[in-house]
Design a protein around this nucleic acid. Structure first.
Ligand code: ZN
Ligand code: ZN
Ligand code: ZN
Ligand code: ZN
Lengths: 145, 145
DNA sequence: CTTTAAATGAGAATCATTTGCATTTGCATT
DNA sequence: AATGCAAATGCAAATGATTCTCATTTAAAG
């Protein structure tokens, strides 16, 4: 949980003008425990008494992603894009298909696989996206009952 | 490349009434060399002289996916959903971020990884989605020039 | 305190996809 | 082959997430 001054500094050091909306959105992402969509960020900020416009939330998220302060996460079967604070770590997601809870996973098992693929296909591989789906412990119980 | 009779039989055996649109869409998917989006399927069928409505293409794709004759493929940075003939094989995609060419990959390196995740997280894992991005041999050359 | 380029708010526009409803069609039954 | 009916289709309008336009406000540099 960063202070307002820290957030402001983070914005400036990434070449972004520091505004109320940006500080608010960045602050929200930084303290959120899982990726959130624009509408949700918008709603939560309003609930906190911070009046931002939805267009501005979208624009701000785009700016933040542009300078590497946020990351866009697109999941299958999810109509809307999610966003999270970007600590620039490569990661994957374990998503509950029932309650939508998301656990970020930092271990990546695909280094060798990518090399093999490059050799076999002639592609120059620049990255990958891996999402794992299933039931979280809670939903597992419920679905059994 | 299946005959019309084969396509019809495939539809019926999956519990779907056999109609001109369904036969056309399924036929297109079956002979396509890579996943295509609804609009594209629509355009190609028209070009072949088969008049189908775009809504019908969408509805047909939904039906085909519903009975397991097609599969929806959602890729990052791709505004529209893609569809492919479903041979029920688990697969991944190697996508060129330049020309959008897609190579399906049948080898999956994630069996052990899923087991480890189940143990560590308590989730019951039901599946995963892995897409690899990069430059195809052709685009690799171009970007160097 | 001015100045000025960038950011914002409000709402319209866009784009893929879905839906309502009147009409047509597959196909089982006579 | 003719009949009947539920399911499928065409068309246009609705939807929902996201982007854009443009007039107004604001951050921050001088
Ligand atoms: Zn759950
Ligand atoms: Zn990885
Ligand atoms: Zn390419
Ligand atoms: Zn796999």
């Amino acid at each position: 949980m960063k202070s307002r001054a820290e957030l402001a500094e983070l914005l400036r050091s990434h070449g972004l003008k520091c505004t109320r909306s940006r500080e608010a959105v960045l602050g929200y992402l930084e303290s959120a425990c899982q990726p959130a969509d624009a509408e949700r960020i918008y709603a939560e900020l309003r609930a906190m008494g911070i009046a931002v416009n939805l267009s501005t939330v979208y624009r701000t998220l785009e700016s933040l992603c542009g300078v590497g302060l946020a990351k866009k996460v697109v999941l299958e079967n999810e109509g809307r894009a999610l966003f999270e604070f970007c600590d620039s770590a490569h990661r994957h997601y374990l998503v509950c298909i029932c309650c939508k809870k998301i656990i970020p996973i930092t271990f990546c098992p695909l280094g060798e696989y990518e090399q093999q693929l490059e050799q076999r296909t002639g592609y120059e591989i620049t990255g990958h996206k891996l999402d794992v789906y299933g039931y979280c412990p809670q939903c597992k119980k419920i679905s059994r009952a």
